[in-house]
Amino acid sequence: MDEIERFQSARWISPPEAIWRIYGFILNEIYPSVITLQLHLEDRQIISFQKSDNLTHIMNNDFKSKTMLTEFFNINRNNDKAKKLLYKEFPEHFVWNKRDKIWIPRKQCQIIGRIVTTNPIEGERYYLRLLLNHIRGPKSFEDLKTVNGVKTSSFHESALLYGLLESDNSLEQCLQEASLYQMPYTLRRLFATILVYCKLNNPKMLWNKFEIFLSEDYNKMNTVLSNLTIKTLQSVNSTLELMGNNINDYHLVDYNIDLNEDEK
């Protein structure tokens, strides 16, 4: 098989892309730039090392354990400007130096920060991200677990005391963010996961708000409008049943998101 010939014969360029290339416009530049911010639980960061390295030395090397998040906490202890910022706002005012693993003040350019996404099924990591999106200037993981002088045992408990879980706002934000880049099938799995693992006050409200994103692939398949909701609900219900094999029996009717009698 001639892979080069196969690639050339299979490649197709649309007229807009052809014109774009003829005029020499930039094809893949993103402005403003987006930086991905690391997210990990305490002492759970990823550390890279060579096969021949001494593991004891690596474990005792503080520099190896430094990450964007740990240094975010460190700079908040001494920098008054940093204390006013959320973690996701940090790249707008500071630059991450990869070589020295340190945040330094930004002098030019515009950049946007995005914290690595998480799923509610991840538990504490999900609630850590929730806290980082709302609490300004935390100085440590323990600081995030302290609410009005009261030390909590988990990020989940801390989020409860901050009032971040009193409504479905955090889960709505989770779905809203995922709907920007997740494929509909993956989005339906996330919706099912939220139903199973999170305590929703009004699941039907979330369904009504995100149904258009959950059913986007069926809509593009020119599915009849009357069958669109049915197909989407059946897909979510199938995922719930698969989860039920390992936990309990879950169905959409348990969440007051079911079909009317005619649709059944």
Rank of each mutant, 00 (worst) to 15 (best):
K204Y: 00
Q8D: 09
S48Y: 15
S167L: 10
I13E: 14
N256Q: 14
I46C: 06
K220M: 04
I75G: 00
K220T: 04
K264T: 02
H57E: 11
Y127M: 06
L187C: 05
E29T: 14
Y162E: 15
D62R: 09
T56W: 10
N219T: 04
Q108F: 14
I75V: 07
E172Y: 02
P16C: 06
D62V: 07
T67P: 07
M68L: 05
L69Q: 14
A178V: 00
P184Q: 05
R11H: 13
K64Q: 04
E216T: 01
K84F: 06
S154Q: 11
M68D: 04
L165R: 07
K231R: 00
C109K: 15
T118W: 06
F7T: 14
N119P: 08
A82C: 01
S226R: 05
L175F: 00
E241N: 09
N119W: 14
T117A: 07
Y197A: 01
R6K: 15
N97M: 04
F213K: 10
E263A: 09
N119G: 08
F63Y: 02
I75N: 00
K199T: 12
N208I: 02
L242A: 05
D62I: 05
P16K: 12
I47R: 10
N245I: 12
L85I: 13
N260M: 07
T186R: 06
G123Y: 10
V147A: 05
Q108E: 15
D217R: 03
Y181T: 06
R189L: 13
S215C: 02
